[in-house]
């Protein structure tokens, strides 16, 4: 049981990473990652909506008739999205302005409806919570990572701290729309490559272990 809960949590961070492996929720990933802090802000907003709506959906999953499942999910998700929209406007106006249109658009982010459909409506609240938290943290690190790359390349800073000497020419293209596509494309490619290498290693160890056993036998 313990290990399965761990797996529920960890799958969102790597194996089933929503953005980099499942390739869903790409719009905000491309749009708001002009700086690491924006990616982080967006990621945290997604965690809030994802965790709250998953838990609520899981709690009421037995009362919702199957035919009106989707409209109910959408309404619940829209409620939490509007709440985070208002909270950001009140307490983090600067971040709210940067994220702009993409906060209300969390509602149509396939990650959230996807988790509700695939997991929360079939599992008890505790597991739905763990699953949502894992997926949300996956989204957050993905967005922050891509935001950091674009910020370093485009402005020479990360979280506003100058790390590349100011005399070095910054590549503005990374802050513009094409740079978003390039960065995400390369990060997805790199992630695939790492997984290929890991897979090959795993096979090799299995094979050498088998070979070792054969020799001993």
């Amino acid at each position: 049981m313990q290990t399965s809960i761990n797996r529920e949590f960890l799958k969102g961070l790597w194996d089933e990473h929503p953005i980099l492996r499942l390739l869903i929720g790409m719009c905000p990933t491309l749009a708001v990652t002009t700086a690491a802090v924006n990616g982080l802000g967006m990621g945290l907003s997604v965690i809030f909506v994802l965790v709250c709506s998953s838990v609520i959906i899981s709690l009421i999953r037995n009362f919702i008739p199957n035919q009106v499942r989707i409209p109910c999910f959408i309404m619940i998700i829209a409620t939490f999205t509007t709440i985070i929209d208002m909270v950001l406007a009140a307490y983090f106006p600067a971040l709210h302005e940067v994220l702009g249109l993409f906060i209300p658009l969390i509602v149509v982010n396939c990650i959230i409806l996807g988790r509700a459909e695939a997991f929360a409506c079939k599992n008890p609240p505790a597991r739905a919570f763990i699953d949502a938290l894992g997926m949300g943290l996956g989204v957050t690190w993905g967005l922050t990572f891509i935001g950091a790359i674009r910020e370093i390349m485009g402005m020479g800073t990360v979280f506003g701290l100058q790390i590349v000497p100011e005399t070095a020419t910054s590549w503005i293209i990374f802050l513009l729309p094409p740079g978003a596509f390039f960065t995400l494309g390369i990060v997805v490619g790199a992630m695939n490559h790492i997984n290929h290498v890991m897979e090959r290693r795993r096979q090799q160890t299995v094979r050498s272990a088998a070979a070792g056993q054969a020799v001993q036998g």
Binding site: L23, P177, P178, A180, F181, G185, I186, V188, G189, N192
Partner: peptide, 23 residues
Amino acid sequence: IPKALQGAGISLITAGLMSLAFM
């Protein structure tokens, strides 16, 4: 296409070039 970029990777980079053109 390099194995790692097949599928989404190369599509995104193509989209980047198209976006550059649209700029």
